[in-house]
């Protein structure tokens, strides 16, 4: 009983948003009457070119692939520049990671089209490039924030440098790294939605199509789903972060 209560307390909010998202994804067609009130003059008031579930899956897989690339590349490059053989690159990489955040994600997205053309691929590239920056910055901050005395004593215990990294530096930096991942994913969910203007199929499709054709009902359907997706993901990562910092 007590255990169930804590589960509800910890995962309650993310579960609430997640269930709203799932219900909304499948139930929009049943609310046709309400949407007709908003757009009485349109023949069709429920977006139907793709099912909302397909769009949600596409959106999630775009963000998922991009996040995987950014996490792998971001964490490993931050590790690389904090090791002795890569430390020449540390000033440059940390400077890029902080300067790159000045670039608006929409500009990065737009600039990837001349390079790669339209479709899902340039969206993934733009998302993973842009998502890299907060992860690199936070991983660097996390690793550099580890007390040098702790590392010394780990070495003194006879740990190899790989063991120090695996068992001391990364675990101690994990909360900061996770908060970088959270920032990166939040930005990417928003940017992926705009990705439908460059031909990636995402939850942005109903919004864009509604804006182009003057159908507010489509816009609302897309916007609600995008909002719920962002809220579910963000609260989920927020809870993960709390759990991780509580464990230490």
């Amino acid at each position: 009983m007590g255990k169930q209560e804590t589960i509800a307390r910890i995962w309650g909010i993310p579960l609430l948003w997640l269930s709203c998202l799932i219900i909304a994804t499948f139930s929009f067609p049943y609310f046709e009457e309400i949407f007709r009130q908003i757009e009485p003059n349109q023949r069709q008031v429920i977006y139907s070119r793709d099912s909302f579930f397909t769009l949600l899956l596409n959106h999630l897989s775009l963000v998922g692939i991009a996040a995987t690339i950014s996490i792998l590349l971001g964490v490993s490059s931050a590790i690389f520049v904090t090791r002795p053989f890569g430390k020449d690159f540390l000033p440059l990489v940390s400077q890029i990671a902080s300067m790159g955040q000045t670039f608006p994600p929409i500009a990065v997205l737009a600039l990837s089209v001349p390079l790669l053309g339209f479709g899902a691929l340039p969206t993934i590239l733009a998302l993973s490039l842009y998502g890299l920056l907060p992860i690199v910055r936070n991983t660097l901050a996390g690793i550099q924030g580890v007390d040098a005395a702790v590392i010394e004593s780990a070495r003194g215990m006879g740990m190899s440098s790989f063991q120090v990294l695996r068992q001391v530096e990364l675990p101690l930096a994990s909360t900061v790294i996770l908060s970088g991942i959270r920032t990166s994913v939040t930005i990417n969910i928003a940017t992926a939605a705009i990705g439908s203007t460059i031909g990636a199929s995402t939850l942005g499709d109903p919004v864009i199509s509604g804006l182009v054709n003057g159908n507010t009902a489509y816009v609302i359907q897309g916007a609600i789903l995008i909002g719920l997706l962002a809220l579910s993901t963000d609260s989920l990562l927020d809870r993960l972060q709390l759990r991780l910092s509580a464990r230490r």
Binding site: A190, A193, L211, T216, V219, G222, A223, G227, L231, D234
Partner: peptide
Amino acid sequence: NFIQTIPSLALFGLLIAPLG
């Protein structure tokens, strides 16, 4: 914090109907 979490495209879209 809540507002900041909502993606821009969604917030712009959600404002259209009430404002109109």
